[in-house]
Design a protein around this nucleic acid. Structure first.
Length: 785
DNA sequence: GCCAACGTGCTG
DNA sequence: CAGCACGTTGGC
């Protein structure tokens, strides 16, 4: 079908309405819907063509994938036993670059895109179909009669721009839902997309040079409240948070970290490359596609290159893989990439796109965009500055959505360091900064242990050298957990699976001699922080370094503030193991996250609030193998019951009465106020449970052990390790119960006051006939073979 | 014609 | 307003 881009509104309207009436009886329609409301069309439909649906590119990593079978939409599919009502693509298969359908033709010449027939980049651009995100018209730029073809290309979406007409008229795209630009799915059909906001055009092999950048936004001062609403999450001033500086409003928030594919422009500056022999030797003239950038960014990139160098020059690290301090670094990078790394991801996260639009609070303040009418890219500010701004904006975003309704008198929270060296303090219960932010916790007791003890115990009181959570400082959640309503607004770009190309393109058109897999081996030695640095080197490295093999474990333990961008970055990397212990993650965030991590097997949430952990109750929970909910505040029997119940989302056709956590093998429940009630559930619902940590659970007693090891329970045979240390109600008698366990290999009874060494020795003696045990430490029994 | 899935109206 | 439902488009 040919495109009808002329946009006969009347026709479109009436037709669609009729169709709806005919095809959609809508038995379930409520009264409001029963009278078919006029189909709402974009306000600017009058000047627009009908929207063309976009279709898969079939080439991107996402398109090449198979369905995960585990995400929300897969579960809906008939092939996975679902009702097939939602008819949505697997989350992991969301096309990264949806293209115009084959049937699309130029509204002017009625011909299809002709770029394939051309050699020159500029020609290609002129003869490719471009769809305007505002008026939806699809044209060849060459067919436009507008001499000053100041179209603004949206580099996030193939064949998408703001046509010169709209651009010139100062129209603003994405005013309404329908106007958000084609091909947007999650981000797009949800208001305020963070990630798919358009950017100023990027050089696609310089093709876009044909299209002149929109000089600046001063031309388009019209502020439309809806615009910012849909486009950029509001910046939260109403919540008494520090109002962002005007520049903030220009910043786009797009993705976590620095892994954006667009980040090729983060290439190392020519200057550095040429100046630094080491560097230039290592990366001879990596093609960065941005050598023509203005000096505006020079200092910025200087820092970047420096960072990169320093990362590479730390040869000592190449040999010993991270952990410890290194790991902390990488964690910090993840935690707060904007602050910690000078060369932060600000680039792609913050492009002050013409499309980005001002925030709702400052919609009309577009002047900041103005000062660089000639800048080819207007997306960067000095990195630190950007980082700070972004981080602030994001935190505010979360905070706002969280607090807005009723917090008008709240004191502004300190969100960001005032200086670069200052750590953010807002969310950390940290020494003197604790204040009284959490008074309820100060007096609250769990498990008979005062809060302070509970949270400072493991490292400070216990004689046990737990290597698990040592909850020294518990992040102070906001008054209510941050409802990260923006999360849905992030486009989920699945992690690259086989990032092309295989070799690094060089400026001279050749490729670097070393193959990707070799680079990957090198990258394998780098810490996450260093990977983040490498990602900024060039587009190719950016892709390679985002390979999920390099990110199987993501550790955000004790992250002071989980931001939407961070979560997006996590999703992109699809870790197998995710540590969110002692963070202030909110329920919404967690729910959003786990719904998008179908491959997640290890989830650590120790020290989080039950409010957050409860996300596991309603979400289409991943089939976790390891769940760590130690010291989760408020997690008691009732909550455990919720946790172990079948998903609440039991609509017809999606019935799944199985426990969401049925595949858990390693369950860590230290420090919880749970009783035998929970243990009964656990032994019933977790047939694969092998490793159970009940340390510091003061309600656990001999009867509990009896339950777990009783005839007919699966735990009796599945348990291999059990930790009952510091369970003061457990006595010698429990050891008799453990004799029934066929697979038990380790029983930790250290610091159980009522367990005697003699009983342990007796246990060993009695078991020696069948299974040899030994005392690894006092009251720590271990199978010796 | 079938199937996948995009885009958007509607509901809770 | 998030999420669901479904008409309809697009590919094959």
């Amino acid at each position: 079908m040919a495109l009808s881009l002329s946009g006969d509104d009347e026709e479109y309207d009436s037709e669609s309405e009729q169709q709806r009436a005919a095809n959609r009886p809508k038995p379930k329609m409520g009264p409001a819907a029963a009278t078919p409301a006029p189909v709402k069309l974009p306000s600017n439909r009058s000047s627009s063509g009908a929207r063309r649906r976009r279709t898969r590119c079939r080439k991107c990593e996402a398109c090449l994938r198979t369905e995960c079978g585990e995400c929300h939409f897969c579960k809906d599919m008939k092939k996975f036993g679902g009702p097939g009502r939602m008819k949505q693509s697997c989350i992991m298969r969301q096309c990264i670059a949806p293209v115009l359908p084959h049937t699309a033709v130029c509204v002017v010449c009625k011909e299809a895109g002709k770029e394939d027939t051309l050699e020159e980049e500029e020609d290609k651009f002129n003869f490719m179909l471009m769809e305007c995100s505002i008026c939806n018209e699809i044209v060849h730029p060459n067919c436009l009669k507008v001499s000053d073809a100041s179209g603004v290309v949206n580099d996030e979406l193939p064949n998408c721009w703001e046509c010169p007409k709209c651009n010139h008229a100062g129209k603003s795209g994405k005013v309404l839902k329908q106007k958000r630009g084609p091909g947007f799915k999650y981000a797009s059909n949800l208001p305020g997309s963070l990630l798919r906001e358009q950017k100023p055009l990027k050089e696609e092999g310089d093709a876009s040079s044909a299209a002149k950048r929109r000089p600046d936004r001063e031309e388009t001062p019209r502020y439309r409240p809806e615009e910012s609403l849909h486009r950029q999450p509001p910046l939260l001033s109403p919540c008494n948070l520090p109002r962002p500086r005007p520049e903030d409003k220009l910043r786009k928030k797009r993705k976590l970290f620095d892994d954006d594919d667009d980040d090729d422009d983060l290439g190392v500056r020519k200057k550095e490359r040429s100046d630094d022999p080491y560097f230039s030797k290592l990366l001879p003239q990596i093609k960065t596609e941005e050598d023509d950038e203005d000096a505006y960014e020079e200092h910025n990139d200087e820092g970047r290159a420096h960072h990169f160098r320093s990362a590479l020059e730390r040869k000592g690290r190449f040999g010993d893989a991270e952990e410890d301090g290194e790991d902390k670094d990488s964690k910090n990078e993840l935690l707060n990439p904007f602050i910690k790394t000078p060369i932060g991801d600000s680039d792609q996260s913050l492009c002050s796109s013409p499309q980005a639009g001002p925030s709702s609070e400052g919609g009309s303040e577009t002047q900041e965009k103005g000062p660089r009418p000639k800048a080819r890219r207007k997306r960067r500010l000095p990195n630190r500055e950007l980082s700070r701004e972004l981080s602030k904006a994001l935190n505010q975003e979360i905070q706002k959505t969280d607090d807005c309704p009723a917090n008008e008198n709240r004191q502004p929270l300190k969100v960001e360091p005032e200086t670069e060296n200052e750590e953010p303090k807002r969310l950390f219960r940290n020494g003197t900064e604790l204040g009284d932010q959490r008074p309820h916790l100060k007096t609250k007791e769990m498990n008979g242990t005062p809060w302070e003890l509970r949270h400072f115990y493991p490292s400070q009181i216990t004689p046990l050298g737990f290597n698990r959570s040592t909850p020294t400082n518990r992040p102070v959640p906001p008054h209510s957990p941050p409802k990260c309503v923006q999360m849905e607004r992030h486009v989920i770009r699945p992690p690259p699976i086989s990032p092309p190309p295989d070799r690094l393109p060089l400026k001279d058109g050749k490729t670097h001699v070393i193959q990707r897999e070799v680079w990957m081996k090198v990258f394998g030695y780098l810490t996450h922080q260093e990977l983040c640095v490498c990602m900024r080197v060039c587009k190719t490295w950016n892709r390679w370094c985002c390979d999920k093999r390099l990110w199987t474990k993501i550790d955000l333990n004790r992250c002071t503030s989980i931001t939407p961008l961070m979560l997006s970055g996590v999703v992109r990397r699809q870790p197998v193991s995710l540590d969110l212990s002692w963070t202030n993650i909110s329920k919404k965030q967690l729910s959003w996250l786990i719904n998008r991590l179908p491959g997640l097997r290890v989830l650590k949430l120790s020290g989080c609030s039950w409010a957050a952990v409860s996300a596991l109750c309603t979400s289409s929970c991943p089939l976790l193998r390891t769940l760590d909910v130690q010291w989760v505040e408020g997690l008691k029997d009732a909550q455990m019951r919720d946790l172990l119940s079948p998903p609440t989302d039991n609509r017809p056709g999606q019935l799944d009465n199985r426990c969401k956590l049925r595949n858990v093998e390693d369950l860590r429940l230290a420090g919880l106020d749970i009783t035998d009630t929970s243990l009964r559930l656990i032994s019933r619902q977790m047939p694969l449970l092998s490793n159970l940590d009940l340390s510091y659970c003061n309600h656990i007693n001999d009867q509990s052990v009896n339950l777990l090891t009783a005839a007919g329970t699966t735990t009796r045979d599945s348990l291999t390790e059990i930790n009952l240390s510091v369970c003061n109600r457990v006595t010698d008698h429990s050891l008799n119960f453990f004799k029934r366990c066929g697979s038990i290999c380790q029983i930790d009874l250290r610091f159980c006051k009522q367990v005697t060494k003699t009983a342990c020795e007796r246990f060993i003696a009695e078991m020696s006939v069948s299974v040899p045990f030994r005392l690894k430490e006092e009251k720590l029994l271990e199978k010796s073979s």
